[in-house]
Amino acid sequence: MIRVGLIGYGVAGASFHAPLIGAVPGLRLTSIATSRGAAVARDWPEATVVADAAMLLSDPAIDLVVIATPDSSHAPLAQAALTADKHVVIDKPFVTDPADGAALIALAEARGRMLSVFHNRRWDADFLTVQRILADGVLGDIALAELRWDRFRPAIKPGWREQQGAGLLNDLGPHLLDQALQLFGRPDAVAADLATQRAAATTEDYFEITLSFGERRVIVSAATLLAQPRARFALHGTGGSFVKYGIDPQEAVLRGGYPPTTPGFGEDAPEAYGTLTDAAGTALRIVSARGDWRRFYSGVVAAIAEGASPPVPARDALEVMELIAVARRSADERRRLPQP
């Protein structure tokens, strides 16, 4: 049994990490560092509440530390956890400075510890469906792919993400860019546009990044003032198009307080299925693959217990943060930046 210590019990810790850890065989949530002791006592009465991260990291009984805290704390907490010879999972984004990510990877390798990043959107129903369609080759050669995540949030949401965070690019960008890299690999050029569109916003709340792969274009974008969201995925190739609307349903289930063992967890409603239009113009509804974020933590168990590759290698997450840094430079310099 892998004994898990969770640092942070905000939305990410309470709604995502703790329920997923509790639902995966081989993991036991034993300790939580938080100021929200009453919430932990209600939700996880068998877990010990500690006042701060240092107390959790000094516990020799903890095998795996999960960091679900504000972005700026990820690097120092992960460094302390690895130095204490713990395996580590970090909520996205991996780090805010790619140099810190490279240092953490080197430290994990030197200590012989697993280091992974919670890019849970690799196990979304829509993304798994897109992966399957691309593997089947029914769309032919892809000319344009669009991965978008739109919200309608005119008011600034309370909490650190919108008030003290690093902006929408650091919040949703890691998910979208990780998916793009998984589908198409590393681009040969990057062009980005960032904007702060809400009057009260202090960080960017809109971005659009164009990744070039020769003549292929892959666009990743997120916006905060779209009452009518654009397609979540739209892929167009020589054999046809696939278009899918809506966000994977797992987040809503977990935020609603329901466990990942809830019947139908990760399954799209039929009305949310995507549409594949072939070269002849025939439109077919495509049943979505079943999403399951538990697969991330099942992969963590395999990595620690069996020496398997982490479910999300930290180097993958570092590549995402390097692309975000390039995108910010592209936006600042207002030019397209070739990539090696």
Rank of each mutant, 00 (worst) to 15 (best):
R3P: 05
G5L: 05
Y9M: 12
V11Q: 13
S15Q: 15
H17Y: 12
I21P: 04
G22N: 14
L27I: 12
S31F: 01
A33E: 04
S35C: 06
S35K: 11
R36G: 08
G37I: 04
P45S: 05
T48I: 05
D52I: 04
A53D: 06
M55I: 12
M55E: 15
L56H: 12
S58F: 03
P60C: 08
I67D: 02
S73I: 00
S73F: 10
A75P: 00
H87I: 01
V88Q: 00
K92Q: 05
V95S: 01
T96A: 08
D97V: 08
A99K: 07
D100L: 07
L107E: 10
R122C: 00
F127C: 07
R132K: 14
I133Q: 02
G137V: 11
V138S: 09
G140F: 09
A143P: 03
W149L: 13
F152H: 15
P154V: 08
A155I: 00
P158E: 05
E162V: 07
E162N: 09
Q163N: 15
Q163P: 04
G167F: 12
L168P: 04
P174Q: 10
G185Q: 09
P187N: 06
A189C: 06
V190P: 00
A191H: 11
L194C: 01
R198E: 00
A201I: 04
A201S: 14
E204A: 07
F207Q: 02
E208P: 02
I209P: 01
I209E: 01
F213L: 10
E215D: 14
V218M: 00
L225M: 13
P229M: 09
R230H: 10
A234G: 08
L235R: 06
H236T: 14
K244A: 12
P249T: 04
V253M: 08
V253S: 03
Y258P: 00
P260F: 12
G264P: 09
D268A: 13
A279D: 08
G281M: 10
A283H: 12
L284T: 15
R285F: 09
G291S: 10
F296C: 03
G299L: 03
I304L: 10
E306S: 13
G307M: 11
A314M: 09
D316A: 14
M321F: 04
R329T: 15
A331M: 10
E333D: 14
E333M: 12
R336A: 06
Q339Y: 06
P340Y: 04
P340D: 14
